[in-house]
Simulated assay, not measured.
Amino acid sequence: MRDQVRAAVAEITGREPSDVRQLGGGDTAAAFAVRLNDGATVFAKTAPETMPGAIAAEAASLAWLAEPGTVAVPAVYGHNDRWLVTEHISTAAASPQAADRLGRELAALHAAGAPAFGAAPPGGPAEAWIGLAPMRNEPSEQWPSWYARYRIEPYLRRAVDAGTLSHEGSAVISRVCEEIDDLAGPAEPPARLHGDLWSGNVHWGEQRAWLIDPAAHGGHRETDLAMLHLFGCPHLDRILAAYQEVSPLAEGWRHRIGLHQLFPLLVHTVLFGSGYAAQAVAAARSALRAR
C-alpha cells in the first residue's frame, strides 16, 4: 500500500515522497501522512472501490466550504479517481478560544448560502456519500419536503428492509415525514452545510478548529448544529453561544434537534445495525412532541 501512496502523491502533486505513515481514524478510507523530499508533509486518503465518486465529492465539498473564506478546511492539492491529497493539519487540544472562533466561523459559513436545498457543491456529483452511505443531492426549493424525501425516507426504507428497524418504529418516523411541515419551524434560506459535522470531523489545531471529511450540500443550518450535539463536541456551549452572537437561531431550535438528528441516526442504523434504531425512534418521538 505504501508504494501505491507514494505513486499517487507523486502523480497528483508532482513532488517526490520520502516517507509514508498510515494514520488511524475514519471508517471510510485509508489515510496517510506523507513527507515529501522538500520537507513538507501532506495528507493522502483513498476511498474503497465500492464508493464511486467519493473522492470527487469530497474534493468539491472542501473547495466549496473554503470559497467564502469563513471556516478553516484543508487546502486541496489535487485528486484523481482514487486518491485525494490535501494540506496536513497538526493536532492540538481543543481550547475555549478556538471553540468561540469556530462558532463565529460556522455562522458565517452557513450564511454564505447555497443555490437550493440539496444542491451539490459546484463540480460535485449528485450521487455523493456520507460516511459509507450513499447520499443523493437533489435540489429543491422547500426544506421540509426535501428533507423527508431525500434524507429520511431512503434510509428508513433500507433500515426496514434490512430488519434493523421495527415496523412500529418505522411508523413513528413515517409520521414525522407526514407532519414535517408543522415540525420544521420557521422557513429559512438554504445554508452552506458541512453536512457530516459530528465531533470526529472537527479537527482541533493550534489556534482554531478545522473542518474535515465534509458531505457538503445546501441544507438547513440547524442540521449541522444538531450533528454537533449527537456525539458530543468539546466546548459545545461556547460554539453555540458564539454562533448565536453572529446569527441567532429561530425560536424553538433546541426542540428541533431530534428532527435534524433523524438523518444521521438512520444512516448509522443502516451502516451499523439496530443499536442506533432506538435512538432514531427516540429522536422522532422528540420531534413530534416539540410541536
Results as ranks from 00 to 15, higher is better:
residue 1 M to D: 10
residue 4 Q to F: 11
residue 10 A to T: 08
residue 15 R to D: 11
residue 16 E to R: 14
residue 17 P to L: 09
residue 18 S to M: 12
residue 24 G to K: 10
residue 31 A to D: 02
residue 34 V to K: 05
residue 35 R to W: 12
residue 39 G to N: 14
residue 41 T to M: 08
residue 41 T to E: 15
residue 43 F to I: 05
residue 54 A to W: 13
residue 54 A to E: 11
residue 55 I to Q: 08
residue 57 A to K: 04
residue 59 A to T: 15
residue 64 W to A: 08
residue 65 L to E: 09
residue 69 G to L: 11
residue 75 A to R: 14
residue 86 T to L: 02
residue 91 T to K: 09
residue 92 A to M: 01
residue 92 A to T: 11
residue 96 P to L: 00
residue 96 P to M: 01
residue 97 Q to Y: 05
residue 98 A to D: 03
residue 101 R to W: 14
residue 102 L to D: 00
residue 102 L to R: 00
residue 103 G to T: 05
residue 103 G to F: 07
residue 104 R to S: 11
residue 108 A to S: 13
residue 118 G to E: 04
residue 118 G to A: 08
residue 119 A to V: 00
residue 121 P to N: 01
residue 125 P to D: 05
residue 126 A to Q: 14
residue 129 W to G: 08
residue 130 I to G: 09
residue 130 I to Q: 07
residue 130 I to R: 13
residue 131 G to H: 12
residue 134 P to N: 03
residue 140 S to N: 10
residue 144 P to C: 06
residue 145 S to P: 06
residue 145 S to T: 11
residue 146 W to E: 02
residue 148 A to V: 07
residue 152 I to N: 11
residue 154 P to N: 06
residue 155 Y to D: 11
residue 156 L to E: 06
residue 159 A to D: 10
residue 159 A to V: 12
residue 160 V to G: 02
residue 162 A to C: 07
residue 164 T to P: 00
residue 165 L to E: 01
residue 170 S to N: 03
residue 171 A to Q: 12
residue 180 I to N: 00
residue 186 P to L: 09
residue 186 P to V: 13
residue 186 P to H: 06
residue 188 E to D: 14
residue 189 P to H: 14
residue 189 P to F: 09
residue 189 P to K: 04
residue 193 L to N: 10
residue 202 V to N: 04
residue 203 H to G: 10
residue 204 W to N: 04
residue 207 Q to E: 13
residue 210 W to H: 10
residue 210 W to S: 10
residue 211 L to E: 07
residue 216 A to Y: 05
residue 218 G to T: 12
residue 220 H to C: 04
residue 227 M to D: 03
residue 228 L to D: 01
residue 228 L to K: 03
residue 231 F to C: 05
residue 234 P to W: 02
residue 235 H to W: 11
residue 237 D to M: 05
residue 238 R to K: 13
residue 238 R to Y: 03
residue 240 L to Q: 04
residue 245 E to Q: 15
residue 247 S to L: 08
residue 249 L to G: 01
residue 249 L to V: 08
residue 250 A to C: 13
residue 251 E to V: 15
residue 253 W to P: 12
residue 255 H to Q: 15
residue 256 R to T: 06
residue 256 R to Q: 06
residue 257 I to P: 02
residue 260 H to I: 03
residue 261 Q to G: 07
residue 263 F to D: 05
residue 263 F to T: 02
residue 264 P to A: 05
residue 265 L to A: 01
residue 265 L to V: 00
residue 270 V to P: 02
residue 271 L to Y: 05
residue 272 F to T: 12
residue 272 F to G: 02
residue 274 S to T: 13
residue 275 G to S: 15
residue 279 Q to P: 00
residue 281 V to E: 10
residue 281 V to H: 07
residue 282 A to D: 09
residue 285 R to L: 14
residue 286 S to Q: 15
residue 291 R to M: 11
